[in-house]
């Protein structure tokens, strides 16, 4: 089993190289350049734009740029941002706390909601609570976050005036008062995200439970006279978690890239905002940096998911 994982980790290296190469190629071939924010501004004439591109190394063919990029990445250096002219790692470092505070918490929260709610609505599928939850998750799925965000702002910032609509990233969490502010400003973004995430996760959890509840082993467990709680949690839930774990693991890296729209709406300015604005500025090193870390996490979490199957379902054979 350990062997199996070491082998998998080794396999992951070429696939990371492949992924990064293809992403780099896409970024290089996709249209756009770092000076487009100047629009048609005559103050930045064509020659100036060319000089800037040269300064950024964009005058070289992209395969050469890829090799240069890859060789610095090996040394742990993700390059420097075209727009901010500072190291990409530093930029990501500045953004990560915001993303974790909001997106990470929202993700955890949605898990905490989704698992019990999904189980409950599967165990008592005909109950009123189950229907109500169903409906709510459906709202979460079908309303785009840009809409729920605006609606929350209208209610809580404009009408009631109780929550701030601009997220303050300068808060130093050293006092009770600062924590209070932090909680207040996090409520809306976290709520928007949690509603969205929990909706889908609840549905998957419920579906997996429904698949497992009628299974023989559950009947057997009941027949053995185990308590209903034990039957559901120890037997049905454990098996139902298999597909759900895939989802959780696979989407965990998404926490890293953040919930872009939500970050935008509330100006949380985390990694997601960084990614989008860098794409929009054609700030390739930043996009590559974020996406590459993301790819590492994707591959890594796939490995974790594999391991989790093994733990949850001993019948899975590793060969």
């Amino acid at each position: 089993m350990l062997n199996h994982f070491i082998r998998k980790v080794l396999y992951a290296i070429p696939s990371l190289i492949g992924i990064s190469f293809i992403i780099f190629a896409i970024l290089a071939l996709a249209p756009g350049d770092p000076m487009s924010e100047f629009g048609a501004n005559p103050d930045v004439p064509a020659e100036v734009r060319e000089n800037i591109k040269k300064q950024l190394g964009l005058d070289q063919p992209w395969p050469v740029r890829y090799v240069k990029w890859a060789s610095t990445v090996v040394r742990g250096d993700l390059g420097f941002s075209f727009a901010a002219k500072i190291p990409v790692t530093q930029l990501i470092g500045q953004r990560l706390p915001q993303t974790m505070m909001v997106v990470g918490v929202a993700y955890l929260l949605s898990l905490l909601i989704a698992i019990p709610v999904g189980v409950l609505s599967a165990v008592k599928p005909r109950s009123l609570a189950s229907h109500a939850v169903s409906l709510l998750t459906m709202v979460g799925i079908s309303l785009p976050t840009f809409l729920t965000g605006i609606i929350l702002i209208l209610i809580f910032s404009v009408e009631l005036g109780v929550l701030p609509m601009i997220y303050d990233t300068n808060l130093k969490l050293t006092s009770a008062e600062a924590w209070g502010k932090q909680i207040k400003q996090s409520i809306m973004p976290i709520a928007v995200l949690a509603l969205f995430n929990a909706g889908a996760m609840t549905r998957f959890m419920r579906s997996a439970m429904l698949d497992n509840l009628p299974a023989d082993y559950v009947r057997t467990a009941r027949a053995k006279g185990l308590s209903e709680w034990t039957v559901i949690v120890k037997h049905a839930l454990r098996n139902s978690l298999i597909p759900v774990v895939t989802l959780i693991a696979v989407n965990l890296p998404a926490v890293f890239t953040g919930a872009i729209i939500t970050e935008q709406i509330f100006r949380v300015n985390g990694i997601g905002e960084l990614l989008v604005s860098s794409i929009q500025r054609s700030d390739t090193p930043v996009v590559m940096g974020v996406v590459f870390i993301y790819a590492v996490l994707v591959v890594g979490s796939q490995l974790i998911a594999d391991a989790a199957y093994g733990l949850l379902d001993p019948r899975i054979k590793f060969s």
Binding site: P144, T145, F146, F196, N197, A200, L247, V250, N251, A254, T257, A259, I260, I261, T262, E263, Q264, G272, E273, L275, V276, S277, I279, Q280
Partner: peptide, 16 residues
């Protein structure tokens, strides 16, 4: 989830 990501990304991008 993927949708979510895609949507948010694209929507955000478009806003931007």
């Amino acid at each position: 989830y993927r949708f979510f990501k895609l949507c948010s990304l694209t929507a955000a991008a478009s806003m931007l």
